[in-house]
Nucleic acid binder design. Structure first.
Lengths: 185, 185
DNA sequence: TACGAAATGTTAGAGACTAACATTCGCAGT
DNA sequence: ACTGCGAATGTTAGTCTCTAACATTTCGTA
């Protein structure tokens, strides 16, 4: 099970070690060397699996899911409604255990200036997909970029707030972001 | 004239050297040492004036202006209208020569992944001011954060696009961002 | 001119990241 | 089980960003 050879397993160990160490001591106080060591591996191996120190925490398997969900919406929907539907659908598919993992990651991110600043980079693919979905529905190039950026920013802000609370359903955070974009005027 | 002693002049030389070198060779290919050398100064002096390599390019004198302008809007205005009015007022006060400088900086930023990713950090103060302005008008804490993040993201995206074009008035870019936030639905 | 403070330089070092090369590990086919 | 090949990991050495502690210069002012 759990597709993949050794590489995938060390990757997982690196992520788990990183989140655990950073949750306890803060991202800036944990060196790549220590993360690697905690995962039973060398610093070099860390950099073979992740391009930067930030990426081991920011790397989110759900981002591509969102991109796909948005792109898959029927073209009959108006532009921003399609984006909203895609986001809802993607996050609805996240079960409780996975949501806990997401929350742990987001808490580490929320606690670090550097990580928060680096978030847009990791959501770039999703933003791109949203912009594409908008464009294919007749929205101008520039306007699509702007609307996508605003959507992702709202979603990110909502998720970071959500992560700091306890026992709030993940769906509420998504609805909150969508509600603001929908009713902005 | 031009308030301030030697320190301010050194700072200006560092910024000019950084923008010029990076415009020619790209941000990632220019070391702090070379920027300092081009400004006739040591690497150490660079770090006394700027906390990071990114900050010498990202440092924007207009960000605080925007924050002030938003905070100064009359409380009679509805929340997002106040933000829009503040943004318009702030950017209207930028003359053509200053706009050129802004454009040069933004072009360097647009060309670098790292700099684009670091932008939110440099606009954090502005986002904070916008969130505060919204809160003081009765918007919920979380909603204020989300709306502010979306506003700044839209504005940033519009400015980065604007910088890549020639002979477009700066005001148009601001209007474009505001228009999308205003009519998002 | 001499003084004090601001501005800059020097040195040393930790940590992020890269490149080139050497080694071990795991799975296919026999 | 054995072998062999490629994938995964280790080693070493180096560049670059950024910090700290201490020494030196520069500049306005008394």
């Amino acid at each position: 099970m759990s597709r993949g050879g050794k590489a995938q397993r060390t990757r997982d160990r690196l992520v788990r070690a990183a989140v655990e160490l950073c949750a306890g001591e803060g991202f800036e106080n944990v060196s790549v060397g220590r993360i690697a060591q905690a995962a039973g591996v060398t610093e070099m191996t860390f950099y073979r699996n992740f391009p930067t120190k930030e990426s081991v925490v920011l790397d989110d398997p759900f981002d591509p899911m969102i991109a796909d969900a948005v792109a898959a919406q029927p073209r009959s929907l108006p532009a921003l409604a399609a984006v909203a539907a895609g986001l809802r659908h993607a996050w609805a598919g996240v079960d409780d255990r996975a949501a806990e993992t997401v929350r742990d990651r987001l808490r580490v991110i929320a606690a670090s200036h550097r990580l928060r600043a680096a978030m847009p980079q990791s959501t770039a693919a999703t933003a791109q997909a949203i912009a594409d979905a908008l464009r294919s529905r007749g929205v101008t190039d520039v306007d699509a970029e702007i609307a996508a950026a605003a959507t992702i920013a709202a979603l990110t802000a909502a998720l970071l707030e959500w992560a700091q609370l306890d026992d709030q359903p993940l769906g509420d955070a998504v609805e909150r972001a969508l509600g603001i974009l929908d009713g902005a005027r």
